[in-house]
């Protein structure tokens, strides 16, 4: 039974890797495989359902939206924006948050300053803060990644800080000090490897929030331009038609779910791999 469960888990990890690889591949080769221009509007074919339903129009695999654009083509193109923003923003905020958390947990003076800044930032809704920054630095995908990365550091910093505080007095950290390691090495070679598990957990969840945040900002006209499809803005555009043309928002929703789920499972696998106890157990 245990063995079976082990195999299931193994298969699941490979399946997730395959799903993620497939989406990345789609994003890369998008122009080669889409049957339609993702922005081509055709009011005669608007709100057509997916091909397996009654009333579908041939050639539109997943149906069309309210402007007659091909959902499948838009999903394929949308994966470019959504996955790039989701993953890069999380990498950026994770790196910033982890660094601040490490320093805050280790140096009291840094802690006093950074945690007050974190409090201030938490008092603003993230989306409002992102709005303000985008309004100043301008839109576009690069700025969007930057903004989501810079505003997303607080949860990492909080968790990493408390983990560092609980681990810094443990004997193996004291032992590292007594053999004469520098503080930098102590932080990155002794403390950090022992607190990766919660960082990975937060990061996998943050991917989903970043994809959604991108759509909110784009919806407000402050993210990627309207003529660039993303899963997020397909989701929000389709809300109005949920009762009559569910496929507009459901398919991009499924894609977000699949990507997030795959990242979650892979995140767990990475976490287990990095813990010698489960790797060899």
């Amino acid at each position: 039974m245990k063995r079976l469960r082990g195999r299931m888990k193994y298969a699941l990890v490979w399946f997730s890797a395959a799903v993620l690889a497939l989406f990345v591949l789609l994003a890369v080769i998008a122009p080669l495989i889409v049957p339609h221009d993702p922005n081509a509007q055709n009011l005669l074919t608007r709100l057509k359902p997916p091909v397996w339903l009654h009333g579908a129009k041939a050639g539109f695999l997943l149906g069309t939206d309210n402007l007659g654009r091909d959902i499948f083509s838009r999903i394929v193109y949308g994966s470019r924006v959504s996955m790039t923003v989701g993953i890069l923003a999380v990498c950026l905020s994770g790196a910033i948050g982890t660094l601040i958390g490490l320093l805050s947990g280790f140096y009291n003076a840094v802690d006093q300053v950074m945690m007050r800044i974190a409090d201030i930032q938490l008092a603003f809704p993230t989306i409002l803060l992102a709005l303000a920054i985008v309004a100043v630095v301008g839109g576009g995908m690069n700025n969007l990644i930057l903004v989501l990365g810079v505003t997303g550091w607080v949860p990492y910093a909080r968790v990493v800080r408390s983990e560092v505080m609980s681990i810094r007095t443990s004997d193996f950290v004291v032992a590292a000090q007594t053999i004469g390691v520098t503080e930098t090495r102590l932080l990155f070679r002794h403390i950090l490897p022992n607190i990766v598990a919660p960082i990975i957990t937060i990061a996998t969840f943050q991917v989903a929030s970043a994809i959604i945040a991108e759509s909110s900002l784009s919806f407000l006209g402050l993210g990627v331009p309207v003529n660039v499809p993303s899963w997020g803005n397909m989701l929000s555009e389709g809300q109005l038609y949920l009762g009559t043309a569910w496929w507009i928002s459901v398919f991009p929703g499924i894609c977000i779910m699949l990507v997030v789920l795959a990242i979650n499972i892979l995140g767990d696998a990475v976490r287990d791999y990095m813990d010698p106890k489960t790797r060899l157990g």
Binding site: D171, V174, A175, T178, I179, N194
Partner: peptide, 29 residues
Amino acid sequence: FQMVFQDPYASLNPKMRVEHILAEPLLVN
């Protein structure tokens, strides 16, 4: 001057191989 700790379960970095634990003092110095 070096130290031996009370709790042998807490005094070794769980993410390091023994070889690395023993070589580290020599390398960092």
